[in-house]
Design a protein around this nucleic acid. Structure first.
Length: 502
DNA sequence: CTAGGGTTAG
């Protein structure tokens, strides 16, 4: 354990910070007793008592709970003056306060100023980076921790696994961390299990998910909530509902996370009756003002084709925020009423009632795509940067590529793929390839197909589309060559499991 | 003797 320093890598993921923090902070309503404890600390302070290190620590905890960075930094000053500025407990708390409030610079300053670190102080900083959308930095710091004599524990792994889950650039590290966890015998910790289940479900590795679920006690409610969303995410809504029904029948504690996830499952299965039952439960539990729950209700009703009820739920919500407005716009967009969705968006923007974020733009751009309003979509994309100072993320670039490609402007689509700050993925190349086929562009289609041969080496789809493209152009040698290529690369011609044929 | 970090939801 020696003095150390750490600097941010040139901010390649700074743009992720805001949106993910914003929603994590959302439901952390200040705790009443937290306020009381802070108040009593401040009162003691005013009366001139010198706080003990224990009192300082508790006060910092309350600041973290209530997201009060102002009081936190006042206490920070007190700490420096009272000579506790190398206390491990206090500094870990301080790092926690600053990261919870999104003051990453201050957190880093405290962390770097510590002469000695233990597993908790390392974990506080790693976790803080992860929760602020800086998963890459979180992993860097974890690697640095591994070079010291301090060993990570369960909490460290939970933080770093969730960092991998949310950040594409370090996504593949998750499996390695799983191996660590097993080696160290942490796989029975329910926090670790739920973070791993979440990770694998987002990789589409349901085999791993089911294995993890089977080998844990399965009574932890967060694990169960995670399973409901894992099944839903991977098109196994029936299984998701089974988990929920089991929870309900076992009198497990149902939270707003549970309601949100199970409503998602109902929407995916379009089972309106079940959805209405859950809606009843929402009312009974008094969760009808929780943004996530209300958003999920709107989504469920619109997926079940009941747009009127979706609007009714929206109207009933007392407080309308970005998430709810976005849910409403999504509801119209996915009910085949793209132009209505755009009208609501334009109206809100004009009246400055809300500032759209990345998620909202994805909905708007998708709506344009589905309604064939391609030029309109392109101009919305441009507005992201010009009017809202939002750096487009990979999802919005995917929409833009789609917009250009569907229009037949294949060169612009390709230019976006080459110049955007992300690597074009298989989904993008696939939709590009489909458009190449649509417009009979052999040259670009070939390029896209060969890219896909690398990105999805087992999929027959790009081979078949390219063969189609060649056939359409009368290039029969090319068609023959594709068959040869498939044999050479061991690609099976069966389309089973490859649903997205262009 | 008292104190610090964690999972799930658009």
């Amino acid at each position: 354990m020696s003095a150390r320093s750490f600097s941010f890598q040139s901010g390649f993921c700074l743009s992720f910070g805001f949106s993910s923090t914003a929603h994590k902070v959302f439901d952390k309503s200040p705790q009443r007793h937290g306020h009381e404890a802070v108040a009593s600390f401040v009162q003691g302070n005013v009366l001139g008592k010198k706080p003990t290190k224990y009192e300082l620590c508790s006060a910092l905890n309350c600041c973290a709970k209530t997201l009060n960075s102002h009081l936190g930094s006042q206490i920070h000053g007190k700490i420096v003056h009272s000579g506790f500025d190398q206390n491990l407990y206090i500094n870990s708390s301080l790092v926690n306060v600053y990261t919870k409030c999104g003051s990453m610079g201050d957190a880093m300053k405290v962390f770097n100023g510590m002469e000695v670190h233990d597993e908790v102080s390392w974990t506080s900083m790693i976790c803080g980076l992860s929760q602020n959308g800086q998963g890459g930095e979180a992993l860097c710091l974890f690697k640095e921790m591994m070079t010291t004599l301090v060993r990570p524990n369960c909490v460290t792994y939970v933080s770093v696994i969730s960092a991998c889950t949310e950040q594409e650039s370090v996504f593949r590290c998750g499996e390695l961390l799983d191996a660590h966890v097993i080696m160290l015998g942490h796989e029975s910790n329910s926090f670790v299990v739920s973070s791993l289940i979440d990770y694998y479900s987002k990789c589409g590795r349901m085999d791993k998910v089911v294995m993890l679920f089977g080998s844990c006690l399965a009574s932890d409610d967060v694990v169960l909530n995670t399973m409901i969303s894992a099944y839903t995410r991977n098109q196994q809504g029936e299984e998701a509902l089974k988990v929920f029904v089991k929870m309900r029948d076992a009198n497990a504690s149902l939270s707003e996370h549970t309601l949100t996830s199970v409503l998602d499952a109902c929407g995916a299965l379009t089972v309106l009756q079940m959805g209405k039952q859950v809606h009843g439960l929402v009312t009974k539990m008094g969760s009808d003002q929780n943004t996530f729950v209300v958003g999920a209700l709107i989504n469920m009703y619109s997926k079940c084709g009941d747009i009127d009820e979706a609007c009714h739920v929206f109207d009933q919500a007392g407080y309308k925020n970005n998430i709810l407005w976005t849910s409403l716009i999504t509801a119209y967009a996915q009910s085949g009423r793209g132009p209505d969705a755009l009208r609501i968006f334009d109206h809100l923007v004009m009246e400055k009632r809300f500032y759209p974020d990345h998620v909202c733009f994805t909905v708007v751009l998708t709506a344009c795509n589905h309604s064939g309003l391609l030029d309109k979509g392109i101009s919305y994309f441009k507005k992201m940067t010009s009017d809202y100072n939002l750096a487009p993320e990979i999802d919005q670039y995917a929409c833009l590529i789609d917009l250009y490609a569907r229009k037949g402007d294949l060169n612009s689509a390709k230019k976006v793929m080459e110049e955007m700050p992300f690597d074009a993925n298989a989904v993008m190349w696939s939709s590009f390839l489909s458009s190449c086929k649509e417009y009979g562009n052999v040259e670009l289609g070939r390029e896209a197909a060969y890219k896909l041969f690398e990105l999805e080496p087992h999929s027959p789809v790009p081979y078949l589309i390219l063969a189609d493209l060649y056939a359409g152009a009368g290039l029969w040698d090319g068609v023959k060559n594709i068959r040869k290529l498939m044999n050479e690369n061991g690609v099976r011609k069966s389309l089973a499991g490859w649903s997205c044929v262009g």
